[in-house]
Design a protein around this nucleic acid. Structure first.
Lengths: 217, 217
DNA sequence: TCAATAGTGTCTGTTAGACACTATCCC
DNA sequence: GGGATAGTGTCTAACAGACACTATTGA
């Protein structure tokens, strides 16, 4: 069956941190095409209920995971006659960040089989061109962090500078110098020191920080 | 009439340099909606002939201007129920660069009324949300040049370093230091000195350069 | 010779990287 | 005190900005 109009969908690369590694959410496809294969969560545009594609992405992700993500941004648009066996398709790719401490919430609400795969090695034989999409989303995320964006949306509300640094290191795939990292945050308006709040452990307590009002990335 | 499927189009912000200013190509709309208003060249996807949306963009631009541009890249995707009066629409925005010396070629082949507007002040009352699209395309272009991309596609095949610097300055909207600019190009593999070729004028001749093999941006 | 633009050299303040150092908790 | 991690100080090399300087043409 040949379609006259392209299929318009959004796919979302949802990242989080689990066990000190950057993970991306995959969903096992139940239906054709490509049943049984793992894919990024995605779904078709519903013109009746979505006011724009950002809406579509939020709705799709909310439907598959039960959570509303705090950050969602467009990566790029993939299109073509052959990338989906159903015919000409357009997929607008988004990426989203889920705070570390909200991962359990998804596990409880999921309706389909899901897996948190290593973002840098999500496995072969993914559905459609989703391996490419993951690479593109990862490149965008890395590029932003490289350009001094703060991935606070991957962290809990309160975090230490060491945690922030480790998160950046996971994304960038390389070690950062503690002194340099902190020096650059000295006059950073996007994070605020939580006066008198510390994280206690079996060592010197660490100052806690939070995102500033109006923080986006 | 309510559509079940969204309208999928591409719009292209085609930039060039005219009279020492950065310009963007606008086309006067002949048909509804918004007849008589100025808009970016654009057109609907044709699944039968386009293998992907990059194809669509090339085809649309070629059809409206008669030239094949050497550089075309995706900016972002705009979507929504209300941005086009015909109904739910998705527009994938591209930007393209036309070498300065090929501007006359377009004037000869055009089939519609066109204008090269100042990219930073393209005028008010543009069709649809195209003022937003121009801003987005410009931001992407500027960001790339800021990050050391070389806008060689705006220049002729052979150019001087001063011409390259002036082009960057037009895009960035600020003056650059000649010494700094040239220092950074010292070990630049993307441009090659054209041994023994100079541009002569009423002053010291200027060394000519060209883009290196395989140059993209 | 001068006007004009091409192209270079140099000083200086800022910043990134490396790495050693001090501080402060729990045990 | 010892172990561990938090947090700071300092040296150096690289780099950007500013700006003066030299070079080479046509008129």
């Amino acid at each position: 069956m040949k379609k006259l109009f392209p299929l318009v969908t959004t796919d979302i690369a949802l990242f989080t941190i689990i066990d000190d590694s950057l993970r991306v959410l995959l969903v096992k496809r139940a239906n054709t095409p490509e049943p049984g294969k793992w894919a990024l969560p995605g779904g078709v545009l519903d013109p009746a209920s979505d006011s724009d594609l950002d809406d579509t992405a939020q709705r799709v992700l909310s439907g598959k995971t039960g959570v509303d993500v705090p950050f969602l941004d467009q990566v790029a648009t993939f299109s073509g006659a052959t990338r989906d066996p159903r015919g000409w398709s357009v997929s607008v790719l988004y990426y989203a960040l889920l705070p570390r401490d909200q991962v359990p919430a998804i596990a409880g609400k999921k309706t389909e089989a899901i897996e948190w795969r290593d973002a840098f090695a999500p496995g072969s034989r993914l559905a459609f061109d989703h391996a490419d999409l993951i690479r593109a989303a990862l490149a965008t995320l890395r590029d932003k962090v490289e350009r001094a964006a703060l991935p606070l949306h991957l962290l809990p509300d309160r975090f230490t500078l060491t945690e922030l640094q480790q998160t950046c290191e996971l994304i960038l795939g390389r070690a950062l110098d503690k002194s340099v990292f902190r020096r650059r945050l000295k006059d950073e308006p996007r994070i605020v020191q939580l006066e008198g709040e510390f994280l206690y452990g079996s060592q010197r307590p660490a100052q806690l920080y939070g995102a500033a009002e109006g923080f986006r990335f």
